[in-house]
Amino acid sequence: MVKFYQHTSSFEHAWDNVTYAFWLRYPNPFASHVIGCDVLDRSVDPVTGVLRTTRLILKQGVLPRWGRSLIKSPDAYIIEESEVNPKTHTMVTRTKNLNHVRVMQVEETQTFTIHPENPKWTQVKTEARIISELRWGMTGRVESFGINKFMDNSVKARKGMAHILERLRQNAAAAAAASAVAPLEA
């Protein structure tokens, strides 16, 4: 059995700002479980201009009491592959865990596009699959736990992005104010 999740959300920020914030989203107060994030590979296709990035993310999860006998360490290594197309204003990210895959595999795809109703906003479509290969009647329990945890974490991820976007807005406002004052001081 497989559990699916799908959600579409919006940020009242331009696509350029949201995709920029995506790269800056760790650390933030809503992602204390993220221990580290490293770029493994990054390239730009010379013909299409598409930026491709592969990152390795280390997260520390929380295990339910019944899951502690199945997984010795709650640390999870996540591979994230992304493509940013500046011409079509589309960013697609795909993530999946590299360890604990027999117990629970989490595969997530996010698509960032210009909002269809307001070109100054960004729409994000999130899709996920939670798959467990456990037997002994545990599959459904593990997948249900996984989908519930994923939904909770999705809310935190949106709050984290909103936090980073607000910080970017504040920094831009401060820089604009500083540049407006600088000529007067000269």
Rank of each mutant, 00 (worst) to 15 (best):
M1Q: 01
M1W: 02
K3N: 07
F4G: 00
Q6G: 05
Q6N: 06
T8S: 06
S9N: 04
S10I: 06
F11T: 09
H13C: 05
H13L: 02
W15Q: 09
W15H: 11
N17S: 11
V18G: 01
T19L: 12
Y20G: 09
F22E: 07
P27V: 14
P29C: 14
P29H: 15
F30H: 04
H33C: 07
V34G: 05
C37G: 01
C37S: 08
V39S: 06
V39E: 09
L40K: 11
L40C: 08
D41G: 08
D41T: 06
D41S: 13
S43M: 13
V44D: 04
D45S: 13
T48I: 14
T48V: 14
T48Y: 12
V50K: 06
L51E: 12
R52P: 03
G61Y: 01
G61L: 00
V62Q: 01
V62P: 01
V62D: 00
P64W: 04
R65W: 04
R68S: 04
D75V: 13
Y77Q: 10
I78D: 03
E81A: 13
E83W: 11
E83C: 15
N85Y: 09
N85K: 10
N85R: 10
K87Y: 03
K87H: 03
T90M: 02
M91H: 12
T95W: 07
L98A: 08
V103D: 00
V103F: 02
V106T: 05
V106M: 10
E107S: 11
E107M: 10
E108Y: 02
Q110K: 10
E117S: 14
P119M: 13
W121P: 00
V124L: 07
K125T: 14
I130C: 05
S132E: 07
R135Y: 03
W136G: 01
W136N: 03
E143R: 06
E143F: 05
N148S: 06
K149R: 15
D152P: 06
D152I: 10
N153E: 09
S154E: 02
K159Y: 13
M161D: 02
H163P: 01
I164P: 03
L165Q: 03
R167H: 13
R169E: 14
Q170M: 15
N171Q: 15
N171C: 15
N171Y: 15
A172S: 13
A173H: 11
A174D: 11
A176Q: 07
A177V: 08
A177D: 09
S179F: 07
S179H: 10
A180E: 11
A182Q: 10
L184M: 10
A186H: 13
